[in-house]
Design a protein around this nucleic acid. Structure first.
Lengths: 145, 145
DNA sequence: TTAAGTGCAAATTATTTGCAGTAAG
DNA sequence: CTTACTGCAAATAATTTGCACTTAA
């Protein structure tokens, strides 16, 4: 019963390990665990250091919070994740690494992807002399109606 | 020579005081000082608590850093300013309160307005069921070329 | 006079770092 | 082996708060 088709523990772990090697990162135990939690099911995920740490604890995994912080930084450095800035008080990390818009649910402080195909920027201010556009962050802030 | 046409100290102070009363805020000495620094010349300004505090110190004004923090919050609460989130480690405040795009200079960690008329969003993802769009933040991150 | 605002120092929160021990190549 | 990684506790950085004192209305 540990095996359940496309979502078995081993499969999640394998996916995590593959993802790690894509970033050229040494697959240590805690990295594999975190990677499996992040991309084990093949879906995109938005986490904070705390939320990922909580998730790991919930699964009974043994990782230090500081390691979660360092690991998320390592994942970003390797280009496997991106840091999204939506709220001054916390850092959010996204497993999806291309430029795409986000919804930010202000009351729940939750971040989700917005459908990229529904965003159409017809014209963008051009970068001033001596600078180039690194990325364009679009955050659609939502409030409960 | 203290008076120089449209930029005299008294005029800056008056503008600051007028701006305060627009927000229904009691014009205490430190609020008037900070308001004059922010909008005294009629231009828009982007500050952090630290940068505004430094500016006040430079001018020989007497304010506590904590008061700068509290005052910026009060200005935002009164709708006189807006907080812009561009960098996890600092809060930026803008005297311009309408939805408009920003340039963020990653190396200098500086925030400036981007020309709003050069941004054209032809289509925007609509708010999911049960939510409405509170604001749309567009940050164009720049790197030196 | 009195509720709101202020100063300062102490508290909080999110995150990073130093260093001794552990594990991957 | 040996260099990178990890854990933990202590350090930092930005911001907030508690409380006695001021001040605008």
């Amino acid at each position: 019963m540990a095996q359940q088709g496309s979502n078995s523990q081993t499969e999640r772990t394998e996916r995590g390990a593959a993802w790690l090697s894509k970033g050229g990162l040494r697959p240590t135990r805690q990295r594999v665990v975190l990677a499996a939690l992040l991309v084990g099911d093949g879906k995109n995920r938005h986490v904070t250091a705390e939320s990922l740490y909580a998730l790991a604890m919930e699964r009974g995994e043994k990782v230090a919070l500081a390691t979660v912080y360092n690991t998320l930084r390592a994942f970003c450095g390797a280009g496997l994740m991106r840091e999204i800035t939506v709220d001054g008080t916390k850092s959010y990390f996204d497993t999806r690494t291309d430029d795409h818009p986000h919804f930010f649910w202000e009351d729940a402080m939750r971040l989700t992807d917005a459908p990229a195909e529904e965003l159409e920027i017809a014209r963008l201010p051009e970068a001033p002399e001596g600078a180039e556009v690194a990325s364009v962050d679009v955050v659609i802030r939502l409030r409960k109606v």
